[in-house]
Each structure stands twice: as structure tokens, then as C-alpha cells.
Design a protein around this nucleic acid. Sequence first.
DNA 1: GTTGAAATTAGTACGAA
DNA 2: TTCGTACTAATTTCAAC
Lengths: 213, 213
Amino acid sequence: MSEISRNGVGGGGQPGRIGIGLELDDVHMKILEVLRENGRISVAALAERVGISRANAYTRFEALRADGAIKRFTAEIDHVRTGLGITALIFVTVRQQMWKQFRAELARMPEVEYCAITTGQHDAMIQVRVSDVAAVHTMVTDRLANIPAVKATETVFILDEVLKRPYVLPSDGDRDRPRSPRRPAPEAQGDVPLGMMRFVGAAEGRAALRKDG
Amino acid sequence: MSEISRNGVGGGGQPGRIGIGLELDDVHMKILEVLRENGRISVAALAERVGISRANAYTRFEALRADGAIKRFTAEIDHVRTGLGITALIFVTVRQQMWKQFRAELARMPEVEYCAITTGQHDAMIQVRVSDVAAVHTMVTDRLANIPAVKATETVFILDEVLKRPYVLPSDGDRDRPRSPRRPAPEAQGDVPLGMMRFVGAAEGRAALRKDG
DNA sequence: GTTGAAATTAGTACGAA
DNA sequence: TTCGTACTAATTTCAAC
């Protein structure tokens, strides 16, 4: 379920004005900041925390929802408590021209929480939550392996989830980041050990793969 | 911020009864199911959808919150709309005995949405959201490279987020999954191309790394 | 975009089954 | 435990400014 908006590399626009949606000003951002920490706050309390009137808060709240800037509200739950304490990442290599099938099969796998198409060595990364390690094995060898679209997989386990923010906002950077310019100053690039850093681009023909998804 | 519960590989318990918390029955699960799709639903409406009384819904709702099964409520937002349309995964190799420093530095990076410690070739995977591809480059070469704890990185871009469920619940499997047993039947393992599947274990000495985090 | 007052709904506290 | 009801407090809506 829940197809989400596409992020195209290189398609980044300027903050606050993207697409044909409404313009997000500082007040909108502040509203989002509050809602990400407490999604169940009343609009009245929200108005007070943001520093605007009730009516204004209702208007903006509804606008953010209607525009799609807020996609939905959800509860964050403790997976260990619900019996799904094992999390794994499965990197999948997908056969060309079979993306549609791959996506269809994904929708039929409830244990998959997240799937993203990536550049690099593999084509997609999926995150699964299951009750035990055996279930990961079953998932990979029984379910994924039986999908013709899946050429190969590579599985790693998640030992610990160190950080999980509800989501990131542009305004987060205003806190302690030194307001870095879009492009780093040329002289700043010299003093880092670039040899240790690898940017992994898309494999050959990857660009064409997105079309038949 | 927001340290979350640790998921230990091999530490999976039986569903519905983990740790010393409250016992989660079918009604609790149904409540979570509703709340994950609509985190702002009123308790009155929640009671109706689950099929219990209002008073009972309040009791269980509060119990789930107090127990920690529900960690928080949040709004899911459209990152492209807020100007953070570029998402990247950075796989990090961390120097032994320097995990504490790595985690401290992570907390000071607002663009990091998620960080997990993994088995396999790398030690950690972090997901960042920024406004443009140049910001990823700045992030990796300027910020991450300057952390002594970081030995090496590998970066891939996310081209498309195909699937993003609020979270997975054990009951999700009751829908269309053929109620698979914990461990796959021996004969079922023979007809899959195991040669294409790779399970990547932890690098040498990885187990010791968790202690000094 | 703001304030204030009416209508509605949410949250709490009971006793009964 | 769970349900049903009554009570109190808060929120949402809608009006005028």
C-alpha cells in the first residue's frame, strides 16, 4: 500500500516553493515541527505553541493536509513489544523490464515496511520486520527468490536502531549548523580524505529501469 | 535525538508477550492498526471502529501509551514539498572503540533521519534528507569525513521510495500470507536458487563494537 | 488575521453487569 | 474487565470585528 512521492536525483528545487502546491512560510514550518513531535496535539494548543490565533491555525492545518504537505498522521510503535523484534535490510537486484512485477509482489508482503529504489550496486533496498531470524530466511529464500523479477539479494541484519527521527525539516539546520552554502567553497574540499569516500552511481542502464516500474 | 529500543538479532521473543510489559491481545492490535492509519482519530471513533466501549478504549489507549507500545504520534510529511527532495543512504565503516563519538556526532546532524547499526560489510547505515545533491556531497566530505570515528563511507542515492508503511504489525500476516510456520519445511528449501542469495554476517570483532556504543 | 461566544465533542468518574 | 451513563472540561465552529 501507500505509494509515496517520487524523489528524483537532481530534481531538487528551492526550499519552501516546490511544484504547484502552496507556499510554505515559517509559520507552516513551525506547525510541522510541532506536529512531528506530537501528532495528536489539538489545533488550539498548536496555535498557542506556534504563536498564532486558533482560526489561523485551523486554516493552515487544513491547507497543509489538503495540499499534501502532511500526508497522514500515525502512531510510532515499539516493534519489540508487538513481537517483531527482528529487522533486516534486503538489497535486491531486479531484472530489467520486470519492475512492475516486483512492485506488485512487494505490495503482497506485509512484513515489508520500506522499499526504496537506489543507485549503486543493487537496485532496491527493502526493510522487513519479523518475529525471528528464521522468518528472514523464509522471506528471502521462499518469497523473494520465487519472484522472477528478483535476480539476486543480499541481506544484512539491523543490530540496533540508533536514531529515528519522525522526519527532517529544512529548519532543523538553523539550530547548530553553520548555515552552509548550497555548494561547498572550493578550498574547503581540499582538506578531507576523499580517498576514503565513495559515491556509488547507478549501474549501466539504470535510468531506463524507472520507466517500466 | 530519540534513542529507540534496541533490536537484538536472535533476541526475538514470541508475539504478543515480550518483556515485562502488558500483554497485547487482539483488541490491542486492532487499536494499533487503526492508529497507524489515522493517528489523530478520536478515542470515541476509535472505540467504535474497534468495537469496544468508549471507557474501555480510553483505558487501553492509555495503557498502550504508558507501556511504551505506542512511543509517540507523528505527522508524515511530503519531503519534496518542504524542500528536502533528495534522499541518500550513507553506509559507514566505524573505527572500533569510537562508537560513542560517532553516536554523539550523529545527534548533531539534523539532516539524518535514520541510523541503524548493521551486520555485513559496513557498520552503520544512515539515511539523510537534503535539498540538493551538492548537500549530500558536503555532508559526506565535510561533516562525516571530519569525524575520527568514521573510517570510510559509501553513498547511494534514493531514486524513488516505492513503499513506506507506517509500521508493520504481526496481524498483517493474517491477510493473504499462507500462515507460514516459524521455520520453513525442509523440502521447501530445495527448490529455490540459493546460490543467488547472500546472507552477510557481521565483520570480525563486530560483536564487541556494540558494548562501547 | 484576530477575538469571543455558541455548539459540539472529548475526557473523567462513577455504579452496574 | 467491560459497559453505560452522567458530569465536567475542552475543542471546534462560526460569527463579527
